[in-house]
Amino acid sequence: MAAQALARDNYRCMVTGRVDMSSSFSGLTSPKPGEITGYSNCCHIFPDSLENIVAGSTGPKEHESATVWTILKRFGYEDICEELGLASTSANLHRLENIMTLETIVHEQFDRLNLWFQEIDGQENTYKVVLAPAAGNLPTVVPIPDQVTFVSHRPELPLPSPKYLRIHAACCRIAHLSGAAEHLDLIFRDMEELKVLAHDGSSAGVLAYALHRRLAASV
């Protein structure tokens, strides 16, 4: 799937636009005049570590994976559980909807919940690129645009799922709430007591925090 993602993304980082150096060396693409190269790799929105499950085992990896799936299912995301493989040895975390081509340093900040993509209303597959203060001097190291539009250069290959990116963004926002200890305590209590999400979206923070606790532990 990594090779397909590279082809879909035109062998370039989806954020910086830099040409993947390995793909260039392999003759899969050539930088255009003025383009800069860099090393990119395969980035999973839901970490691929969640698929490291041994059938019949009850170890920490299995518990962690089962917890993420349980949280998703509990809050109405059965479709994501089915798409990515619900706590089974047939986990499908490598589906293209869960994969992005990102330059190495951008990938690291995405995994650390310091960079996320905020949907722009009315513009399909277009996102504001948000950086947390913890991202430090990232913009001085690589060019980070204010917004990006994801385009599949192979129409038959699907782009990253807006739903998956939305959950990742919610986790990031919760992770970087300023002075949020009391608020997070309240969310945690709600997480223990809540059976379903509120129809008006007011309980979205509960889901975000619950997922953040598990996803951050996987980084």
Rank of each mutant, 00 (worst) to 15 (best):
A5S: 14
A5N: 07
L6Q: 01
L6P: 07
D9E: 08
N10L: 11
R12G: 00
M14A: 08
V19L: 12
M21S: 15
S22E: 05
S24T: 10
G27M: 12
P33W: 09
G34D: 13
G34H: 14
E35Q: 10
T37E: 11
G38I: 08
Y39D: 09
C43W: 06
H44V: 12
H44N: 03
I45D: 06
F46S: 01
F46Y: 11
P47L: 08
S49G: 14
L50H: 06
L50M: 08
E51A: 15
I53R: 12
G56C: 03
G56V: 08
P60E: 04
K61T: 14
E62K: 12
E64N: 12
A66L: 02
A66P: 06
T67D: 07
T67M: 10
V68C: 13
I71R: 02
L72A: 05
R74V: 01
R74N: 01
F75R: 03
G76N: 00
G76A: 04
Y77D: 00
Y77Q: 05
D79K: 04
I80Q: 08
I80H: 02
L86A: 04
T89Y: 01
T89W: 06
S90Q: 14
N92T: 12
N92S: 09
H94E: 15
H94I: 14
R95F: 03
I99N: 02
I99M: 08
M100F: 05
M100G: 02
T101K: 10
I105Q: 13
I105S: 13
V106C: 11
E108T: 14
E108N: 10
Q109A: 14
Q109P: 01
F110V: 05
L113N: 05
L113K: 07
N114I: 05
E119P: 01
E119I: 03
I120Y: 01
N125K: 06
N125G: 01
T126H: 07
Y127L: 01
Y127W: 01
K128I: 02
V130W: 09
V130M: 04
L131T: 09
P133D: 12
A134N: 06
A134T: 14
A135K: 00
A135M: 09
G136D: 06
G136Q: 04
V141W: 06
V141I: 14
V142L: 15
P143C: 04
I144F: 04
I144H: 15
D146C: 15
F150I: 12
H153F: 12
R154N: 13
R154P: 01
P155Q: 09
E156V: 12
L157Y: 11
P158Q: 06
P158T: 10
P160S: 00
K163P: 03
K163D: 02
Y164S: 00
R166V: 01
I167M: 07
H168F: 00
C171I: 05
C172Y: 02
C172D: 00
I174P: 02
A175F: 02
A175L: 02
A175K: 06
H176R: 03
H176F: 03
H176D: 05
L177D: 08
L184V: 14
D185H: 10
F188V: 15
R189K: 11
R189P: 04
D190V: 03
M191S: 15
E193W: 09
V196G: 09
V196D: 00
V196A: 11
H199G: 02
G201H: 01
S202L: 01
S203M: 00
G205S: 13
A208P: 09
Y209D: 07
H212W: 09
R213I: 13
R214H: 03
A216D: 06
A217N: 04
V219C: 14
V219D: 11
